[in-house]
Amino acid sequence: MKSFVNVNPKSLDEAVAVLDRARAQGKKAALAGGGSDLLGMLKDHLVQPDLVVNLKSISGLEGVHREGERVRIGALTTLDEIARHPLLVERYAALAQAAGLAASPQIRNVGTLGGNVNQRPWCHYFRQGFPCFKNGGKMCYAVAGENQFHALFGGGPAFIVHPSDTAPALVALEAEFKVMGPSGAKIIPAEKYFILPREDVLRENVLGENEILAEVILPAAPSGLRSTYLKIRDRQAWDHAIVSIGAALEWEGGRCRKARLVLGGVAPIPWRVPNAERLLEGKSLGEALARQVAEAALAGAQPLAKNGYKVPLAKATVRRAVLSLLPAA
């Protein structure tokens, strides 16, 4: 890896100032949370920063905190803590499950929520250093290549899928992201945080070079909320989602009041399927409706040569996820 300077800021403001200064000087800076992904990328020369800003030197960025009916989760909270936290397990099951299904136990012990939602794509071409769009090049090699793990929706010009397990869960739970920048803090709904390659092919989210994700805020869990995260993976550990879904349904008197269905592994961003959500709203759920919902969720999918199997796979995933959320009789 290329040599770099490690910076240990004591506060978020200081960290932002470091980023801002680096930008002004034309230097590249990288943020390190747990470092579980960043270090590998440094060694593979995928990122070659002049400085690494170590967020772990900032206190107060970790932990799950109740604030009234809302919950604040610091960006440095480990995936393992999120997976086990009783409040999250009980009220925001989709997030706890997603965190618990990510990567491997070792990575969950050091990997942070901030690092998880901001991780770069795991497309083989990107990770092997191909001069692809995501590496600053001029083509997406997956289009005519090995695209079995690539996008069904929202592709172009790059066809990566968003790799984060927690992201679809956070969008489904209507989380908000608190971002710190030179002009202070701003709040961005999770759904608006992630962007398609056609907006900016070099990034997966709106975060600027001098901004830091500081916190994730979960809104009050309404009564009747049930949520889940269902992940299809090839191995029982240490595998990104082939297809996944973060699903949150609110029930009232046996009917679905509100539905949020967000697919993972099928698009360059967590992929919300409003048409499928609408089918559920106001209805009581049975096998037939679940099938309709699944069909609607995958309507308009545009498979590439080798990822057509993801369409029936995602349908089964959607159907099973919503059926698993039937309200207790």
């Binding site: 083989h124 990770r127 092997q128 191909f130 090699y141 090995e146 240490w238």
Partner: peptide
């Protein structure tokens, strides 16, 4: 393998699953 460039895509424990 990427057929166009002849480059292996998934060397390593993780990539080779």
């Amino acid at each position: 393998y990427d057929q166009m460039t002849g480059i292996p895509l998934n060397p390593g424990y993780y990539g080779a699953r």
